[in-house]
Design a protein around this nucleic acid. Structure first.
Lengths: 340, 340
DNA sequence: GTGAAAGCGCTAACAG
DNA sequence: CTGTTAGCGCTTTCAC
C-alpha cells in the first residue's frame, strides 16, 4: 500500500503541501470546501503522515517512555507492575501517545538505554518507577532536562515531579486497625530497605505502635523482597517471636506469610491475623480472604501520564506532586469480623 | 545540556559532517586518528544523535512494537503476559531495539493505534499476540506489508510468520500421562473457544482419549477464560460428572479448579488429579504443587524478537515459522508419585 | 485562506 | 579516506 507523502496528497487534491498539512493537523485556517476535498483524498488513499518526518520538523514525537529500573524488572512477577503498566498504556491510548517500554535489567542495559531515553531519543517525556536508593539513572535524567515523572517517592525530592501514595499513613492505619481489633504482638514484613516504599511503610508501622505506647521489638520485624516466597521465609523468621498479627508490605508477601503460618498449624485469623498492601485481585482468593490496603494502581498509571503530558505541554517547572489516597479493605484475615 | 548536532561536532573536531556520521555509525572508512579525535569530542560534549532525523534519513527506527489485542489486555492478570513481555524487552535491549507497547482495549483503541503501527508509524516491525478469531487488525497489518511476527498460531497461516508451541501434542502428552497414572474419568477445562490455543489444547485432550479408545463426554469438558476465577467456576460445572482428573488449559485455571475441588471436600490427588499449562512460578506454591506443561515463555519472547529482526533485515519473504518445545513437569497434583 | 520557501538533523551516494 | 551535495517528509514562518 501507501508510500504516499504529503506532496502526493497535495497534488491529488490540487492544493499545496502546506494546506494538506493544515488539514491533517486540524489547523483552523482552511476553507471548509477545501478541507473536505483534502480529507476525501486522504480517506481514499489511506494516507498516514510519516511519523519520523513529523517528529523531526515539529520536535514532538507523541511518544513517552516507561522505565522500570533494575531492581524492579524481576518484580515483574508481582502483578503490581502489569497493572500499573496497563493504566499507563490505557492513558496513552486516550491521549494519543505511544508508549515505549524499557525494562532495565543490568547496569549495561542502563548504558544502552540512556541515549534512547534522554533528549533526542525520540521521546517527549519519561515515566520512571523509582524510590530506589542510588538510582543514578534518575539523576542523569533530571539533568538532561527531559519531562519526567517519577512513580513512587524518590529519595531526592527537590525539583522532581512525582506521584505516590501516602505510604506512612496507609501503613499506620492498617496497623492501628490491628491494634483496635485487639492484637497485642504485631509484627511486620517490610520490603527491601533501600526503597522509599519500604521505609515509609515500616515507618507507618512503627508510628502506629508508638502512638499507642507500644514497644518496638526488632524480633517482630522481618524483611522480604515483595515476593510470595520472601513473605513465606520472612514469616518463618518471625515465628519465634510469636506474633499474633502481621502487617506485610505487599499482598504477595502477606500470602506467602499466611502459607507459612498455616503450615505451622496456626489458624487465621484466630491464632494470627494478616494485613497486606496493594489489594491485588488475588487478595480475595485465599481463605480467609486478605484484608489489605488498597492502592489505586491503575489510576496511578493514568495520573502519572496526565502529569507527564502536562509537563510536556506546559513546561517542567514547577515540579508537580501528586499523593493519592489509599483505603483499608477489611476482609477476613484481620479478624475484625470475629474478634469484635 | 546538549542540543548539539552532527554539524556542531564536525566543527569542533575540524572535520566534515559526513565523517562524524561515519564515526557514529561505525563505518570503516575513517582514519584511526580522526576517529579518535571525533570520538573524544563526542565524549566530552555528551552528544547523542537525534533519533528522529536519523530515522527519517535512514528509514530505520530500531523500534519494534508489541501489540496485545483486545481480548488479551484484560488477561494482563495472567502472569503469562508480563513474562512474555519481559522476554521481548530483554531481547530488544540485547539487539539495541526500542520496544513500543500497545495494549488494545477497545475497537476504538484499534483505530487509534493503527496509524502508529502501520508503515510510517516509526516502527520497523511488529510483534502481535494473536490466535484470536476475527482479528481483522492482523489482516490489515499483513496487507500493510510491515515486518510482522505473530505470537501464537494465527487462524490464517499462509504467508504469515509466527511462533508457537505445539499445543496439540503438549496437551495430548499431559492427558496421556493422566491415563497412564490410572485415572479413568478425565475432564478438561478449555480456554475460550475463539482462539487457536484453546482449540489446539482441547484437540490434544481429545486425541489422547481417542488414542486409548476412551469416550469423549461433553459433561467432562468445561470452558474458562484462563483466569483463576473461571477455573473455579468451570470446576464447579464439571463436578456433577465426577471427574477423577482434570487437565486445565492454564495454570491459573488449574489453581482455581483445585480450589473448587478442595472446597468440595475432595483431596488432591487422591480423589482428583490436576494438570495445568504454562508452568508459572506460582505452580509450585499450592499444596500439592501443580503438575503442568512448561512453556518456554521467556524464550518465546526472545525468539519472537530474533525472528522479527531477521524479517526486518532480510525481508519478509518467505514467512518464518517456529514451533517451540514444551515439557511436562511432574509434581504432586497429578498423583504420579502416589498411585504408581 | 493559501502557497512558497526554509529548515528540522541526519544518511548516503558521489566525487575527489 | 574525506568533503560536497542531495534529499528523507513534514512543519512553519512569511508573504500574498
Amino acid at each position: 500500500m501507501s508510500e504516499l507523502t504529503l506532496e502526493d496528497i497535495a497534488k491529488l487534491a490540487g492544493v499545496s503541501r502546506s494546506t494538506v498539512s493544515r488539514v491533517v493537523n486540524q489547523h483552523p485556517n482552511v476553507r471548509e470546501s477545501v478541507r473536505e476535498r483534502v480529507l476525501e483524498v486522504i480517506q481514499n488513499t489511506g494516507y498516514h503522515p510519516n511519523a519520523a518526518a513529523r517528529t523531526l520538523a515539529s520536535q514532538r514525537s507523541s511518544m513517552v517512555g516507561l522505565v522500570l529500573p533494575r531492581s524492579v524488572s524481576s518484580f515483574f512477577a508481582d502483578p503490581y507492575f502489569p497493572r500499573l503498566t496497563q493504566g499507563i498504556a490505557q492513558a496513552c491510548n486516550q491521549f494519543d501517545y505511544t508508549l515505549a517500554l524499557f525494562l532495565v535489567g543490568t547496569k549495561e542495559d542502563e548504558e544502552k538505554i540512556f541515549p534512547r531515553v534522554s533528549r533526542n531519543g525520540l521521546l517527549d517525556g519519561l515515566l520512571v518507577q523509582s524510590g530506589q536508593l542510588g538510582e543514578q539513572l534518575i539523576d542523569r535524567l533530571i539533568n538532561s532536562n527531559i519531562p519526567l515523572v517519577i512513580i513512587g517517592r524518590p529519595f531526592q525530592t527537590e525539583d522532581v515531579s512525582y506521584i505516590d501514595v501516602d505510604n506512612v499513613n496507609a501503613a499506620c492505619n492498617a496497623v492501628s486497625h490491628l491494634i483496635r481489633v485487639g492484637y497485642k504482638r504485631i509484627g511486620t514484613i517490610a520490603g527491601v530497605a533501600n526503597s522509599t516504599v519500604s521505609l515509609d511503610r515500616k515507618e507507618g508501622y512503627i508510628r502506629a505502635l508508638v502512638e499507642r505506647g507500644r514497644d518496638i521489638e526488632e524480633a517482630l520485624i522481618a524483611e522480604g523482597d515483595f515476593s510470595e516466597a520472601s513473605g513465606y521465609y520472612a514469616m518463618q523468621q518471625l515465628m519465634p517471636a510469636k506474633p499474633d498479627a502481621v502487617f506485610a508490605a505487599s499482598d504477595l508477601m502477606a500470602i506467602g506469610a499466611m502459607r507459612a503460618a498455616r503450615e505451622a498449624g496456626l489458624s487465621i485469623p484466630d491464632d494470627i491475623a494478616f494485613i497486606g498492601f496493594d489489594d491485588l485481585p488475588l487478595a480475595t482468593i485465599p481463605s480467609p480472604t486478605l484484608t489489605t490496603v488498597r492502592q489505586p494502581i491503575y489510576q496511578f498509571g493514568i495520573q502519572a501520564v496526565e502529569i507527564l503530558i502536562d509537563l510536556i505541554e506546559n513546561g517542567i517547572k514547577p515540579a508537580r506532586r501528586c499523593i493519592m489516597d489509599t483505603e483499608l479493605i477489611i476482609r477476613e484475615s484481620c479478624g475484625a469480623f470475629r474478634r469484635k
